[in-house]
Design a protein around this nucleic acid. Structure first.
Lengths: 190, 190
DNA sequence: AACATGACCAATTGAACAAAACGGTCAAAC
DNA sequence: GTTTGACCGTTTTGTTCAATTGGTCATGTT
């Protein structure tokens, strides 16, 4: 085995999806970039979607890894949630692939992309949910529904990072951390 | 003046926008429903967009009125915010026009509709913001940025009412009130 | 024998053109 | 003065058809 053809294909597809999106990437182009015949792709992946799915699963793994890297057990729960969520959402702004897919989802509504973005969001939600379950067990936060809480946290973050920018000056990372603390962890009541 | 032609036109347009949306409503159709000539519409409104705008301004007024009706000074601030926001968002589910426009915004992205929906959201935000400013003055809640707080509240409500339903059983009105209280007014910290 | 390949296929897409429908105007009718 | 619908330039929609696509498989290569 001179070269790992499977790896070549996945790398080529990642490159092309990142550059042109899912729909505008043709299997012939992937084959050409990977320097393999088109038929070879189909010995490893049944369909274009399956190839796409493999790449997304890798992306999810990478995001989890990136999140784990900024988490520090000596920090408080909310500090860690903030750091993890912020890091995960930074991905969207840093990685060509997520930028392109986010754009394709909004502008073209490509079904395969829509599906995959749901999967990605679900992965993030599950990740946060697990953290919340642990925090409740440890008594770091009040008991609450982890499903709803992770949902609320993610929506709040997306709103503060992406939606807020549409009409206002972007918020600093520290401001967002303060807001999370203020709203979710302290509350506004007197 | 046997009949108020302007009123007839606005009523006809409201009916048609509610039934078919903005794009699929033609000025000829509005004229036919209103029993006036097409040219008559243009003696009152310069463009189709201007007619649309008038209708939206009426809608905003109606929403404010509906919100005011459920507010009760003897209730707490957060209870009133909940009632007002819930009532406003109920509009989307009750009124044909808002349902149709919400759908047209998402599915077709008609520019004039997008614009108007931003205006509608802005009106809601300003309404909540005013309530927050008063509440801070009265010392009912901690000092906070009213702009961000109203933004967070609305996004949280939209997430809990509309987004949550996409993957879960809808939340009851009381559950949403509890969640708002838990997250925004108490916090999760121990 | 095992694997890799690109010519090939049915299905989908999109460019190009024609026809219909549209928002808006205005001279005529009332 | 007010109302109107035939009319206009533009945009949207429907249609056609050639090019492209995802996927297969008989053939070639090692």
């Amino acid at each position: 085995m001179a070269v790992d053809r499977r790896k070549l294909i996945v790398e080529a597809a990642t490159k092309s999806f990142s550059l042109f999106g899912f729909k505008a990437t043709t299997m012939e182009q992937v084959a050409k970039i990977a320097n393999v015949g088109k038929g070879t792709i189909y010995t490893f992946f049944k369909t274009k979607e399956e190839l796409f799915d493999e790449i997304i699963n890798r992306l999810i793994k990478e995001m989890k890894q990136a999140a784990e890297e900024v988490i520090n057990p000596s920090f408080s729960f909310y500090e860690n949630v903030h750091r993890a969520l912020y890091r995960i959402l930074e991905f969207r702004l840093e990685h060509q692939l997520t930028i392109k897919l986010f754009q394709e989802e909004k502008e073209m509504g490509t079904p395969a992309v829509m599906e995959v973005m749901v999967k990605l969001e679900q992965a993030i939600l599950n990740y946060i949910k697990d953290k919340i379950v642990v925090a409740i067990d440890k008594g770091e936060i009040q008991p609450c529904d982890p499903e709803i809480t992770s949902f609320v946290m993610l929506k709040l973050y997306i709103a503060l990072i992406f939606d807020w920018e549409k009409n206002h000056e972007p918020l600093e990372k520290e401001e967002i951390a303060e807001l999370l603390e203020k709203y979710i962890f302290e509350g506004l009541s007197k």
